[in-house]
Design a binder for these strands. Structure first.
Length: 356
RNA sequence: UUCGGGAUCGUCUAAUGGUAGGACACUGGGUUUUGGUCCCAGCAAUCUAGGUUCGAGCCCUAGUCCCGAAG
């Protein structure tokens, strides 16, 4: 008897093709639209209805059952509130990593399983690799298409979730192949544009989002590497380390944010591209998460601290019981606290943590 | 007050008396399931009033406003 797979249909091309491929492979496929956010914001209308309709159309085209899970309350609590609190604390969170951890591969997984699913699937560019021997565990691996790889967002998945998850898109060579499959299957989403911005919330600027949630912020000084005030900002929570635009500060050379002082509401910048505050060779991470086993401190791993950034060789050191120090082979542009560092072992995601 | 120096896109700054250019910012687009980075395009200026000159950002005169030194 065919296994039941609940596929998260977002209304985009990737998840549509996911469902189509699984059906072709002989699974009993059920499409599910997760409604996580539906609120319109000033100057921005939430695309959830259009996305829902596209998801539904795809289900009809594939002739599979379709249902909707309403996770708005939990998404608000686990993702949006977390995100807002991080910004208030002066860090820069990654809400989509939290969404994957809490919503897609926990809430959605659990709900689907209790609905009778054997497995779930999403349109992520990643691979779940089955153990070759009995001793080996289920591993999360980078997608075949290294350019589109999305494992950076998935490193907080659990082994238990991996055991129940399929990522058929991760086996494809390229986005172009996804597109052509969508065309071949005749899916309405074949030519749909990529969606960006905070997952589910859509293409609203984080700035507008925060203003809407928290109201206008207090202005403060922008201070350069010579302790000179070079401008005024409209709220230090809006800025992130490494940021260049949005400072409204001109003068020959670009200004990059090097630090924030939330207590005094100050934003520090530099025009020196080789400024020591703009580059770092060492990272400290907390909130550690390992998919299978923890790291081997003798090994050299590859790490990534930004989506799509090149992998960098690094060694891990125990910093405390709950934190880790990472020494990088090459310098990278300084990263804000709240962002994630993901540790790879030859294409396999070992785990990672949150920079502090 | 006096003596020097200066005034060019929003900002920083180029232009032997001969098409006012660049950078940053900003806006738009591209890349990107966070933030951000990066790439492309666009917008945009000679302090005012006279004068010399075929022609003035540039030379001359006056004014206005800045900055430095003398009070």
């Amino acid at each position: 008897m065919a296994k039941k797979v609940y596929v998260g249909l977002s209304g985009g091309v990737d998840s549509s093709v996911t469902a189509a491929l699984l059906k072709r492979q002989g699974y009993e496929v059920i499409g599910v639209y997760m409604k996580n956010w539906s609120k319109d914001l000033p100057g921005f209308s939430c695309p959830w209805k259009a996305d829902y309709q596209d998801a539904k159309r795809v289900a009809v085209q594939l002739n599979i059952p379709f249902k909707m899970y309403d996770f708005e309350t939990q998404y608000r609590q686990k993702v949006v509130d977390y995100m807002i609190n991080e910004y208030i604390a002066g860090r820069t969170p990654n809400p989509d990593i939290m969404c994957n951890q809490e919503v897609k591969f926990k809430l959605f997984l659990d709900t689907a399983l209790s609905d009778g699913a054997d497995l779930i699937a999403t349109g992520h560019y990643a691979r779940v690799v089955k153990p070759k021997t009995k001793n080996q565990k289920m591993g999360l691996f980078m997608a075949k298409d290294k350019v589109k790889d999305q494992t950076y967002f998935l490193y907080r998945m659990t082994e238990a979730a991996l055991n129940k998850t399929l990522f058929p898109i991760g086996e494809l060579k390229s986005k172009a192949e996804v597109r052509s499959l969508a065309k071949m299957f005749g899916l309405v989403t074949a030519h749909k544009k990529e969606s960006m911005g905070i997952c589910f919330v859509g293409k609203v600027g984080i700035r507008d989002f925060l203003v809407n949630e928290l109201g206008p912020q207090e202005t403060g000084s922008i201070i350069d590497q010579n302790d000179k005030i070079v401008g005024q900002h409209d709220g230090s929570i809006f800025y992130t380390i490494g940021q260049r635009h949005g400072l409204n500060t001109g003068g020959g050379l670009p200004y990059y944010v090097t630090a924030k002082d939330m207590h005094h509401n100050k934003v520090y910048v530099t025009t020196k591209l080789n400024d020591e505050n703009l580059w770092q060779k060492q990272l400290k991470i907390s909130d550690l998460h390992w998919i299978n086993d923890g790291p081997n401190f003798k090994k050299i791993y590859q790490i990534r601290s930004r989506h799509r950034a090149p992998l960098i060789h690094a060694k891990l050191y125990k910093d405390s019981n709950s934190t880790l120090k990472i020494l990088l082979e090459d310098e990278i542009k300084t990263i804000s606290g709240g962002q994630s560092t993901v540790i790879y072992d030859n294409g396999m995601v070992l785990g990672g943590g949150i920079i502090y």
